[in-house]
């Protein structure tokens, strides 16, 4: 999953000192468990050893969403095309991760499948590309949608059901310091058998719903409000429901083409 990431043995400053270890005592051997440590403290209860990789990912998300407050963090998937970011906030079950994984395999660059990081200074989106989490049916859906995608072993019976992770394409990892301008805020909803709909959403509505999905809006208060309004000002906002992934992707490709057309006309 992390083969393409650079290891920095020479580095001597780290954002988070984390480790995954088998706990001492009986549970090291009998129905073995795994524990997540942040600088030797344990924010969570141990999980069955089989869930070690999901635990690493959840732990990393926890570190970022609780400790990073120099940016606005929003619970949303985010991908980029032609310099513009497509932000997909969504409750669990809305299909945002599935949509995100499919977009990443269709020419969109992964910024993050879980944490949209907005710069307080200029509202640009900072990438945090890590393996994309897939749950339950969406694992098979993505395997079928892009047979070349590298998907991890499945951990069953986690608190979120069966969980697997999709590897981030190498090029996306290499571009992990390239920020993007917010282009669209889209609230997706997967509804089995439904036709595709893309309904424009007022900026006010979108603003409030983005705030509801933010981890640290209340901490950042005024600075957070300014960051949200920067995102909303530069974005087209929609409510979106879909059932067929291919249709959804081509809809977003159209949006991207429209936008780059606009920006070419403007110059």
């Amino acid at each position: 999953m992390y083969a393409d990431y650079s290891v920095e043995p020479e580095s001597d400053f780290f954002d988070f000192h984390i480790s995954l270890e088998k706990p001492m005592g009986v549970r090291r051997w009998v129905r073995p468990q795994v524990q997540f440590y942040v600088d030797r403290l344990t924010p969570f209860k141990p999980l069955p050893l089989d869930q070690a990789f999901p635990m690493l990912e959840w732990g990393l998300n926890w570190c970022v969403s609780t400790r990073i407050n120099n940016q606005l963090t929003i619970h949303a998937a985010v991908v980029e095309k032609n310099g513009y970011a497509l932000i997909l906030p969504g409750d669990p079950g809305s299909g945002k991760s599935t949509l995100c994984a499919a977009l990443v395999n269709s020419g969109w660059r992964l910024l993050s499948d879980e944490l949209t990081m907005v710069s307080l200074a200029d509202g640009r989106i900072f990438p945090l590309p890590r393996p994309v989490s897939l749950k339950n049916e969406s694992i098979k859906v993505i395997q079928r949608f892009s047979p070349d995608a590298v998907i991890s072993r499945i951990s069953h019976d986690t608190s979120k059901g069966s969980v697997a992770h999709m590897r981030v394409p190498t090029e996306h990892v290499d571009r992990s310091t390239e920020t993007a301008i917010p282009g669209w805020v889209v609230f997706p909803k997967y509804i089995a058998g439904s036709p595709l709909t893309l309904e424009p959403l007022s900026k006010g509505q979108a603003c409030i719903r983005l705030i509801e999905n933010s981890f640290n809006y209340s901490i950042l208060s005024e600075k957070g409000f300014e960051a949200v309004t920067k995102v909303i000002d530069s974005s087209d906002c929609f409510d979106f429901s879909y059932s067929v992934l291919d249709d959804a992707i081509s809809e977003f490709d159209d949006l991207a083409a429209l936008k780059s057309g606009e920006s070419q006309n403007a110059t």
């Binding site: 400053f13 954002d15 407050n69 901490i219 208060s221």
Partner: peptide
């Protein structure tokens, strides 16, 4: 260093919000 500032600014924002 810049990477340290991420954490110092985060901590300051956290306590101001608090």
């Amino acid at each position: 260093p810049e990477q340290v500032m991420v954490h110092l600014d985060s901590a300051r924002n956290l306590s101001e919000g608090y």
